[in-house]
Every structure is written in structure tokens, then in C-alpha cells.
Design a protein around this nucleic acid. Structure first.
Lengths: 246, 246
DNA sequence: CCAAAAGTGTTGACAATACACCCATGA
DNA sequence: TCATGGGTGTATTGTCAACACTTTTGG
């Protein structure tokens, strides 16, 4: 931004750029990683699935726009959207990525717990918003398939060296649920006792909830409940096995 | 980008956004981390130091624009700019970050070896480009101080789990030079024998150069020469000590 | 009683540290 | 011959993976 082409640079001299945001919002559901997609109602790519997102308004930052669009386009509860931890993935700026005009898009990722019956069919703008498993994701509009692939790579590696996995869990969760998050996202199997030790000995990763224990699916010993701790980084990291996936 | 406000969205309906790039280019010089800055020749912030960068042209991607601006504004050799490994840091989009108009900026980081007598005073556009040590960096224009701080955090952690440190070194380098990169960027002291083992036993981090050995500063045993290997990730990571800095 | 899931204990392989020591060179 | 930086060896320490085993629930 430092060197304007001309001293009296005219904002309208060039073909204008539009700036948009796109969101890759993930959740873990039934042993599979899901992403929140919407069905496009208009051209281009009418009828195709796409990542939620939209134009940044003149007085918004990209992050503000991301929250607004997420609330408008998907049926996610206001509280969820407001508290959401949004992380910039990267910005996509290839000249022809949108057939209409020059569009530069700032992509974000976010992780949410498995919501009771989420997003889908929210009122208003939410023409159609659905959680779809990554395995059977349809073709996506624009370059959204590439964005989604980048986002997936990012969150897989983020689980290694941050405490972000708790974002996939409800406010109170068992270590079994947390383990399932890792196994689902990494598509691997971890040793339960070792995982448990690693999580509990990392200061600030999780903290025990004073209240009583809870039963999981019914069977088995009731598990203790934990909350996400104050830590954000994971030092040393929790490395994923590099062997065969699952 | 999915949900245009109106079906027949008019590209000129809104106040246009300008899209720029900013570059945080680092090098290691004389035991200190340096960043490449330019002196602004025009308002706003005329006379202030700033990160190199500028407007993205209508048919450019952000990365293409970054290379072009870097070549134009600094005296960096064409070959260096062409081969440079550019990495997106993040995009800065606060509404008032530029007093002139709405400017969204895509920030990049890059690492280069200590060039003989670098950038400074290159011909043409390069009004004034200089390497300045991070310790005594002046106030920067716009929000560039924040961008620079973010970039510094990023490269410090990147050294832990990638092989990027070799980008600070010339094509052929000694392990002592590589060690100095880590010690400088992390502002810490590492155990030389252990560092050596770690680097050499990580497959693809560095590879020996068949030719003979070279003397370093004059004194001491001549060191063997190495090249950067094909690996990009560092598994397991090379963790920086968390103790007191240096 | 059995299956299933939570949770504890123990062991061995391996990796990282700390540090002693030798080598080759310039002055 | 001494200071300096390159390079090797080794003991200790700590961490992690593997796996046997106990505990507590539902059916």
C-alpha cells in the first residue's frame, strides 16, 4: 500500500475490485468431518454448492463481514456466530476466479461443535445451508474446492500444535469426545491412554469440571467432564502418526 | 463471494476497494534480524518508513503484484525476486487503515540471504530502500508496525517446524551459518553439537556439497558446505528453548 | 456375567540434552 | 602455541509408544 502509482491517485481510475469473504466452517459429526455449505440461488453457478460468504461492505472489516454473512446465509445461532473463533486462511486473488468481475476473497476457517440440528433451513436468507461430509462433497462453485482443500490441510496441522480441537467439542466434554475429534480429523487411530496423558499433562489444555461424571453413549464407565483451558499453543506438539491412515 | 447482494450486481455501485500488497522481507545480518524498508516519497506519511508494496493491478494476482512491487521499489536483483519464496501472512482490512480511501492489503513475508550490498539505493523507483535491524526499527506508516510484528511472530515459529531457515542462507552454507540463523531469529543460544545432529539426521533438510571445505571467518577449522535439501516440513520439529532469551 | 468404554501402571525404544573432548586452521 | 570455530563421542534424562490391566457402567 505504500507506493501509490500517482500522487493524486483517483479511486475510480481503475476497474474496481470487489472484496469478499468465504468461510470454511467445520464440525465433527458421526465420525466424519463435515463442512457447512450453501446452495447458490443465482448465477453464476446457480444451483451449485458453495462456501458461505459474500461481499465486504464499505465500512466493514473482513472479519466483521464474515460473521455477518455467516449469520445471514446459514441458520447458525447468533450466539454461536458471535463467539466463533475465526481464523484467516488466506486470500485468493487470481484475476479470473469470478466470471463477473474482479473479486478478491479473504477466506476464513472456523470450528464448531456438532450442533443439535444445525444451520440447515434457517429462516430468511438461508436458502439452503447444510452440513456435508467432506468425503462426499459435491463440486463447488468458483475456486471453493481449492479453498476447502487448503482449509482442510490447515486444520489438520493446527490440531498438532494448538489446542484448537476443543473448539469442535461442546462447552463440557469427555476426553473420549476429544479423542474422537482427533481421530476423525486425522483419520487415524490413537492410543487412548497415551492421548489421555498427553492432554492432561499439557498445562491449560483442558481443566476438570467440578461436577459429577456423565455417561457417554450409555455403555461403559461414565467419563469425567472437562472444559477447554486457557492455553492456545501446544508445546510440545501432539504429532499425528505418519503411518497408514486408519 | 457466493451471495451477491443483488442478481444484477453493479460493480460500480459501491465505493470501490483498492487492493494492495505489503511485504515483510527479512534477512539475517551481523547477528541481527533485519527487515527491508522503504522511505515514502509522498503523502500520506511522506518521509516515513514503510514496508515495500503497492497496488494490485487489474490483471494481477496479489503474488504477482508483490514480486513486481518488490522489484520496482527496492533494488533487489531480478533473479532474487523471481526465485523468492513468498508466503502470505494475512490480509489487513480495517476500514480506516489508509486515510485516503478503502484499502485492503494482502501481506506477504519472504526470507532472503544477506546480500552483498543489498537493495539500498537501487536505480529508478527505489527512492530509498534499506535494511534496518528490527531492534531499532523506526515508526512505520499505516499499520505497518502491526504487520511487521505479525510477520516476526510467524517466521519465529516457522523455523520450528519447517526447513525455511535455509532461505536465510546463501545457496551453499555451513552448519555454523545455519546455526547463527536460528540463534539470531530466536535470540537464543543453541548447543552446537546437538543442533548439528538434529539437522543432519532430518532427511532432506540439508545435503552435503561434494566439493571441498571452506574457511569461515578466517579462524578455526574449515567447515563443510551444505545445500538446502528437498524437505519443507520438519518432523519432528526443532523446538526453541522456552527459557530466558539469550 | 459379559461387553464396552474409562482410566491406571509399567516397560522399552528412542530422542533430546549436557558436556567432555579432538581436529584443523590463522595469527 | 594458543585462540577459535568445526566436528565427534557419550552418559543421562525425559518423552512417547505399546500394551497389560483394573474399574464402572448397561444389558
Amino acid at each position: 500500500m505504500s507506493g501509490a502509482p500517482e500522487p493524486g491517485y483517483d479511486p475510480y481510475a481503475f476497474e474496481p475490485f470487489a472484496v469478499t469473504v468465504d468461510l470454511a466452517v467445520f464440525t465433527v459429526r458421526g465420525g466424519a468431518l463435515h463442512v457447512l455449505l450453501i446452495r447458490r440461488g443465482q448465477e453464476p453457478f446457480a444451483g451449485a454448492w458453495a462456501l458461505p460468504g459474500g461481499f465486504v461492505l464499505p465500512r466493514e472489516s473482513a472479519e466483521t463481514a464474515a460473521r455477518r454473512e455467516l449469520a445471514e446465509e446459514t441458520g447458525l445461532p447468533q450466539q454461536v456466530v458471535a463467539d466463533l473463533h475465526l481464523e484467516q486462511l488466506r486470500t485468493y486473488s487470481e484475476p479470473d476466479r469470478d466470471p463477473r468481475m474482479r473479486v478478491v476473497s479473504v477466506a476464513f476457517t472456523a470450528l464448531v461443535p456438532d450442533l443439535p440440528e444445525p444451520a440447515a433451513e434457517g429462516g430468511g436468507d438461508a436458502a439452503q445451508a447444510r452440513w456435508l461430509p467432506l468425503g462426499q462433497a459435491p463440486d463447488l462453485a468458483f475456486d471453493h474446492a481449492a479453498i476447502l482443500a487448503d482449509a482442510r490441510v490447515r486444520i489438520r496441522s493446527k490440531l498438532e500444535y494448538t489446542c484448537l480441537a476443543t473448539a469442535f467439542c461442546p462447552p463440557e466434554f469427555t476426553l473420549g469426545e476429544l479423542l474422537a475429534v482427533y481421530e476423525t480429523v486425522w483419520d487415524t487411530v490413537l492410543d487412548r491412554p497415551n492421548f489421555r496423558r498427553k492432554v492432561l499433562t499439557t498445562p491449560g489444555f483442558v481443566e476438570a469440571v467440578p461436577g459429577a461424571a456423565r455417561l457417554t453413549g450409555g455403555r461403559g464407565k461414565p467419563a469425567a467432564l472437562y472444559r477447554a483451558g486457557p492455553a492456545t499453543a501446544l508445546h510440545p506438539p501432539l504429532l499425528r502418526p505418519e503411518g497408514p491412515t486408519r
